[in-house]
């Protein structure tokens, strides 16, 4: 069960006796109502909502499929079909305005494949990713993954870069990935592009040129180089500390 219908009266999970208002100004136009379906069952809600808020306004308490509600976390992967269109499309429910006539279903979990690796160990990360994800080589070039990405990444482009071993290019193209899993759910070749890309990004991050001063700063901290200054600050009277704060030099 991904959503719980109704305000959750007692029984079942016992998690829904209490109601709590969203407490925000009405973010919907009540004078104009829109029809949509959730898993084929019709509902009517005010116009101007995202898919996620439309579900809630229709009475659903979302259990799986709501996370950050701001487009970062990929919890709310959704499949839908617009009225009159044959095409099943994908979206993030929190990021997508409801269209009248939409038929929607949350797809809040994709059982994706990933391979274990030690990010510190491998000398040949590009070879390792391709060894761990041999199905990358079976890419049909159909571009379904790219069409399925709700944050508009060039997924097929980075699959190509994985195959050619250009990991910095993979990192560049895949960086905003929200790990929703839709690319893997739709790939006809059985590829899980985003877990392979995460491996590639970690390899790139691990091998990036290190900040030259960081090791020295850490060594200073461990040697106690700042302890005296901190002890001094901690020992100051409130008034003296406040004066020191307001007098500090701003170089930001």
């Amino acid at each position: 069960m991904r959503v719980q219908a109704g305000p959750g009266k007692a029984g079942g999970s016992g998690m829904g006796e209490d109601r709590f208002s969203m407490g925000t100004p009405q973010s919907a136009r009540d004078d104009e109502r829109v029809k949509f379906s959730y898993q084929g069952v019709p509902y009517q809600v005010p116009a101007g909502l995202t898919i996620m808020r439309a579900l809630e306004m229709a009475g659903f308490q979302i259990l799986h499929g709501s996370g950050c509600r701001a487009g970062f976390c990929g919890a709310c992967a959704t499949v839908y079909r617009d009225a009159g269109s044959p095409e099943v499309r994908v979206a993030l429910a929190c990021q997508t305005p409801l269209h009248p006539g939409m038929d929607v279903s949350l797809l809040s979990y994709v059982p994706v494949h990933r391979a274990d690796y030690d990010v510190a160990a491998s000398a040949d990360a590009a070879g390792e990713v391709n060894r761990l994800y041999p199905e990358l080589a079976t890419c049909l070039g159909c571009n379904t993954c790219t069409k399925s990405c709700p944050v508009d990444l060039d997924v097929m482009g980075y699959v190509g870069a994985l195959l050619s071993g250009d990991l910095p290019r993979v990192a560049e193209l895949s960086f905003p990935c929200v790990s929703c899993g839709l690319c893997a759910a739709r790939c006809p070749a059985g590829i899980t592009p985003f877990t392979a890309a995460l491996h590639a990004r970690r390899a790139v991050g691990r091998r990036a040129p290190r900040a030259p001063e960081l090791a020295r700063r850490i060594a200073e901290v461990h040697a106690g180089a700042y302890d005296g200054e901190l002890r001094h600050l901690r020992g100051l009277d409130r008034a003296v500390l406040e004066a020191a704060y307001h007098a500090r030099e701003i170089r930001a």
């Binding site: 991050g205 691990r206 990036a208 290190r210 030259p212 090791a215 901290v221």
Partner: peptide, 27 residues
């Protein structure tokens, strides 16, 4: 918190986090 800060950055470097850096490696 402030004393651990630089080590936390190094921990994430080791884990493979892609920090924004200039060409010389500085953050």
């Amino acid at each position: 918190m402030v004393l651990d800060g630089p080590s936390i950055i190094a921990w994430f470097e080791d884990l493979g986090v892609m920090f924004d850096r200039s060409a010389d490696g500085n953050f």
